[in-house]
Amino acid sequence: MRCFMLILILLSITACDIEEYYGADNSTQQLVETTVVKGNVTNLYTGDSVYQATVQLGSQEALTDANGNYFINYLLSEDEEQNKPTPLRVSADNYFDYEQNVVLSPTINQIDVPLKYGAPIIEQTARVSVPGEFSTYTCQAIVLDYQGWSNIEDVTGHFPYEDNNGNTRLLTQSLNRVNVEHPNRAYYQTRLEYEGAASIYFWITADDHDGFQDSLFHSINIYAPDTLLFGTQ
């Protein structure tokens, strides 16, 4: 009987991993709870990728590449492992900031961010001389704003010219809205009277109520002068 018991004990000892009861093992592959957060930043209206957008996740920061992709190795805090949301903030020039609280998964997180383009876009501009009147032009511009044409605060033209003494001067003049074709697109026009010789180039700036600005530089090809973008003289 005793012998049987001894065999039983010996068997039970060999059955379990005896080394575990006197040795130690602390080896691991990876214990740090870092999670990968990646995604793509795009323009909400056009679907184009946004280059060099700043992606800020908690205390970590990254910039998007030319394809709009970003990649962050993020260390989850104790609270974030309990589903506490992490603030995500994406910002880029001419775009509205994107802010969202995200609950991060401990493995891989794909967070694609569509950014709202905030600035007005001057699509086209043209300057056409008024027939029969010396140094008088009509300047036209088509401005797009995704937040609606009413969001466009001011469209201004900047027109360099040479006065009678040979000095270069700048004529700054607001363009007036003349027509609305689309909820987002508006047509602007003004009549220019230079007190000297008009330069072949000018630029237009557009400001909106959100504080964004766009500008478009335009130079006139004297061999193929501008034609009116809309309307008649």
Binding site: E20, Y21, Y22, G23, A24, D25, N26, Q30, L31, P106
Partner: peptide, 28 residues
């Protein structure tokens, strides 16, 4: 005293359950 600690992290989705991290430590 014998101490053993097992940790396991699993992800379960439509494709099934898979373990992405597992460790075993012990000390005496």
């Amino acid at each position: 005293a014998h101490e053993a600690l097992d940790t396991e992290s699993r992800l379960k989705d439509r494709q099934g359950s898979r373990t992405y991290f597992k460790s075993h430590h012990y000390d005496n």
